[in-house]
Nucleic acid binder design. Sequence first.
RNA 1: GCCGGGGUGGCGGAAUUGGCAGACGCUACGGACUUAAAAUCCGUUGGGACGAGGGUCUCGUGUGGGUUCAACUCCCAUCCCCGGCACCA
Length: 798
Amino acid sequence: MFLRRVLMYDFSKVEEKWQQYYSENHPFEVDLEDAQKPFYNLMMFPYPSASGLHIGNMYSFIGADVYGRFMRLKGYDVFEPIGFDAFGIHSENYALRVGRHPAELTPESIEYFREKQLKKIGAIYDWRSEVITSSPEYYKWTQWIFVKLFNAGLAEKRLSRVNWCPNCKTVLADEQVIEGKCERCDYSVTKKETSQWFFKITKYAERLLKNLEELDWTEITKSIQRSWIGKSSGATIKFAVENSSLELDVFTTRPDTIYGVTYLVVAPEFGGLDSIVKKDRVDEFRAFTQDVEKMDIATRTSIKREKRGIFTGSYARHPLTGERLEVWVADYVLAEYGTGAVMAVPAHDERDYDFARKYGLPIRKVIECEDSELPYTGYGKMINSGEHTGTQSEYFIDHVDEIHSSMKKAVTYHLHDWCVSRQRYWGPPIPVIYCPKCGTVPVPEEQLPVLLPETDDYIPDGSGKSPLARNEEFLHTACPECGGNAERETDVNDNFLDSAWYFLRYISPKNENVPFDQELAKKWLPVDMYIGGNEHANLHLMYARFITMALHDMGYLEFEEPFESFRGHGLIVNEGQKMSKSKGNMINPISYFKTHGVDCLRTYLMFMGSFLEGGDFRDSGMDAVRRFLNRVWEVANYPEGKSSDNLKAKMAWVIERVDYAVKNIKYNTGVAALMEFVNDAAKEEHIEKELVLDLARLVSLFAPFLAEEIHSLKGGRGTILDSGFPSGYEEYAKAGSIEIPVQINGRIRGKIEAERGISEEEIMKLVKEADKLSNYLAEGKIRKVVFVKDKILNIVVS
RNA sequence: GCCGGGGUGGCGGAAUUGGCAGACGCUACGGACUUAAAAUCCGUUGGGACGAGGGUCUCGUGUGGGUUCAACUCCCAUCCCCGGCACCA
């Protein structure tokens, strides 16, 4: 045993040196026009709302950057931009909380994020492409997109019962309501009827769903999108209402239970209800609907809550049997879904069953089952179904179009139109003008941007109107068409619109004439790899896809899907515990920059678990990675001299492992392979320069600064990423002997050392010569030999 | 309830997709160095049995079955955890 001198490297000095090198020499700027092998590597830009990037941001960015570095090392022109999602309710709420004006606070936050954090982490950003969504140069084009959507008939202002957060004092999209609570502040959301701008994303529901099949996205992300779109197939069935011109359309996924309908139910908010409520019941009906209205969404949609309803006094006719059916109003039917009315089949639907039992409504079995199974919701043989008795459910559903003129196949989606207006200050004003003569007029392109006024009067008042409505100077304007007095729309756009197209702006962030250069778009888009958290899998990705599709249909983009590949990564926990401010167990990345260094934090974040599934952060793991990096440095400083063939074979193996690990986003296994190599290399007395360089190249994905230092120590110039992905060890990988495990009757009984590529006959000969193994063979007759070349030998003996 | 992902040592996690389960790392223990500690280095570390010892045998990837020469991996059943959706008709 020989004692090795301890060689520690001064990470803070090394890191400072290369951070400075990166910021002075811009080695990662890409010539977008001339690049030969374009690769667009995208990560989710942060919103500069809090006191700095948190460890989750860091995790996400570094995971994406490792991929970008890998592609760069492979010789691609990797475009890795970054920016700031600086508008929106999170930034605004943060500003309100600390009592500063968002226009004043946001630039400060950005400055801090950029200079103190993002520029330190060793990412290969091209800072020339930075976009800030709150800058007029950017939101001019956000407004431009609004106008384009408006002109294409995809934006519409309509009266709607929308989600209202009494705390944030704004409307929320359905997507921002989580279990009846506001996504931002956790306050119980209520419904409020107001006039709002909507984007007609539902027009794209089928395409958004269908295209998922072709996308190279993590499965979990696709599944989240699918369930959000929520397609369901069935039929609409028309019921005529007695003594009324009203026809009730219901949507059902189970038209095969049509003979089991014993009453109809409509939602309390259903339009035209007044006409069917019998006069003697009007008061009772009013009281009931008002009561329902008052419920917050969490209560309304709670499954456990007992269903309530009242009979309207009207009857409808069953389209097939002519039977009279009571029409009820009940709080368990939602106006927003399907047609807002349902046919109740208590025997075969749990909700209808509960309701029918409570109010003594008839229950009629029409699908064969035991009485004890009611409500039976499975498919089966139709019974008590007139001429269709004996038909199978599935067959009836398939042929529903042929049964009766009142029944038609239909599809509904859970996806709702995207409510984009926000009654807040900190966002891009919606570029629309209301003229008493000309009506709703979009602001002409040449008048964009509609600047957000600089004002101290920006705090929301809960009136349901944006603070901008109080700004007389902003409010009053001239109609672009007739020049007469007109008023501006005072709501601002949802923050998700800002981020729905930022990846397009990155390729031409300074272009004043177009939102994005179409030639560059052809060359660089769609995005080759997008890595980010699954917490944005629903909203952000869906909206970005929608906007891209719409721009495609208008002829601005050749493709309709913005992100060819997407990888959603997991979350970090701290020592097995979820991080939260209230628990006080937040991990502060900056403090680790100081104690362990950026390289160490990067490498550890990638090593602590499977990136796609998230990981458990532990200080002891940080120390382990610091040891590893020190060993890399130590090995790099070994005297130069011939290395063993074994070590070169190991290098061949590591190269393959790292290649596989990065392509499959299994970074932890890549780091593990590098550790193995370093453990082996440390056992030798000296090392060849080329091996040191190749080690550094692979290490540079995770620990860039240390790698750059080693590269320059060994005489390299520029950034190590330009020196190419390691190769050239193939012959060592092929040479040498390997151990082949030998199984006898499925159990490992020994190992045979043999040349690579050995044949079955040869290895059997060696097995028979080996005492121990031949003893096992002697116990019986060889029935079968299974030999997988270079892998395993299994002999069946009986 | 439906849909997705998962369950592997004391712990974080590997196993390139049917081919040596537990790579790599942590922790713990033992040792070297040290006046001492830290740091560093070396060794041991899934359970059980046998052996003075090199070792040998055996059980083992939530649970119960199955397919196969061979199963963490595939099939059937079942339990649990995480995530998404959910009075969605």
